[in-house]
Design a protein around this nucleic acid. Structure first.
Lengths: 247, 247
DNA sequence: GGGGAGAGATGCCGC
DNA sequence: GCGGCATTTCTCCCC
């Protein structure tokens, strides 16, 4: 059990050394910046990373309940006899104050990590798949470009259908919603104007679509094609099959 | 320094007791489910919360590099002489495996937190502000409804302008983009059809707007009104003024 | 549970 | 830096 002064030194020194700091505590949190946030007293996990990002986690939930971005300045001090972690980020124009009632445990360690995560099965993987295998979109479809950055937006796949009509494909990796349709509509409208043609087809490619999105698609004469991104639930399905075989 | 067997017992027992578990380690991570993710060996912070959510954090960055949602089953075991944390969530149809090379520190504690965070300055606060003070939108504007859930969408503020024209206001708390304009456009179109009227005004209210969104607004005959949500950077500005007065 | 939309969204990439 | 957009988005709210 350390004294409050010792906790101040521990934390401030660890921050200076660029260590990753973790402590669990009973605390109260206030945030002010892009909004105002108040969190009354309770048990939380507080983490200060080596890039000076600050995370406050409750005992449940995926996301931090409060946070500051990297590049924040942190200082722990004793105010009115209690521990106060004061954090400020001039760039973000925000600040946080954590009143700490009690620290359950405290640890800091210099962590080294040079790797970035590699994710497969993204929307980009999906548009690449359709570009490489245009027959998946529809028979006779020929892909012309993929992931094209135009000034009207970011077109996933563009190509020519079997009748020679310019066709824009908007991919969604899960469920297409109204936003997907308005996105497609924007591209089709802009391409018609910029190329001076009156007929451009639009296709939403996704494993699923909401009813209202389907309705809006039909209102606008667009098509829906049921296509899943690669690798979707692949491992789980494989393992389930394996497990099932033991039943 | 504990043995691998002891770490297995520590973790599995802590999971059973619903404690919040935190350890830092050198590890390799694989995730399979809504996508496939691979992360090569490095130092990370691993957290298992009392709701059985799993977070893997790198020493930098706001977000977890890998995660599983609450309700996941966790089990640490020794495979080929090495620690393996195996996590599966049947509902989400996903799984994660963390190969642990070395544990730097391990801690678990029963955390209690009954509070939820209170945030002020949201888009809803903004639409409430405009509803209560309709003159902020424009002189002579009368608000009729706010936060109205219609079958055509979720309209922030609806009212009548000084000429008696039905007017829809779409609020954005930061910067309005193309999506904000297409949203407004959808509401205006649907209201025109449902009410059988040809003139409905649309206004985007935000502290900022992108150039292309401004262009699209003008193309569609909509208006932009520069309004900030309440509490935006309020505390920081106040403190800056205080600090400035000492210069 | 599905659908729609906000979030203190974050993060990535391209211009 | 801005802009457009995906995200293993997450979360809330309403139907």
């Amino acid at each position: 059990m350390l004294s409050k002064e010792e906790y101040c030194d521990l934390l401030n020194d660890a921050v200076k050394r660029g260590e990753t700091i973790i402590f669990t505590c009973k605390c109260k949190v206030r945030y002010s910046g892009r909004a105002e946030a108040h969190l009354e007293t309770g048990d939380r996990v507080v983490m200060i990373k080596s890039d000076k990002a600050l995370l406050v986690h409750q005992p449940t939930g995926n996301n931090p309940v409060n946070y500051m971005k990297g590049g924040t300045q942190h200082s722990m001090s004793i105010v009115d006899g209690n521990l106060l972690l004061s954090s400020t980020n001039p760039e973000q124009k925000d600040s946080m104050k954590i009143n700490v009632d009690h620290i359950y445990f405290f640890n800091s360690y210099k962590l080294q990590d040079g790797h970035t995560v590699l994710v497969k099965g993204t929307e980009q993987d999906m548009s690449n798949m359709l570009y490489t295998n245009p027959e998946l979109v529809e028979e006779g479809f020929k892909a012309v470009s993929r992931e094209e950055q135009t000034k009207y937006g970011f077109i996933d796949v563009m190509g020519i259908d079997k009748d020679g009509t310019l066709t824009i494909v908007e991919c969604k990796r899960f469920k297409a919603d109204l936003g997907a349709v308005t996105q497609l509509r924007r591209y089709v409208e802009k391409i018609m104007v910029s190329k001076g043609i009156t007929k451009v087809r639009g296709i939403v490619a996704a494993p699923n679509i909401t009813d209202s999105a389907k309705n809006m698609l039909e209102d606008w004469g667009f098509d829906y094609k049921n296509i899943s991104p690669p690798k979707f639930h692949e491992e789980f399905t494989k393992n389930q099959s394996t497990l099932d075989s033991f039943k």
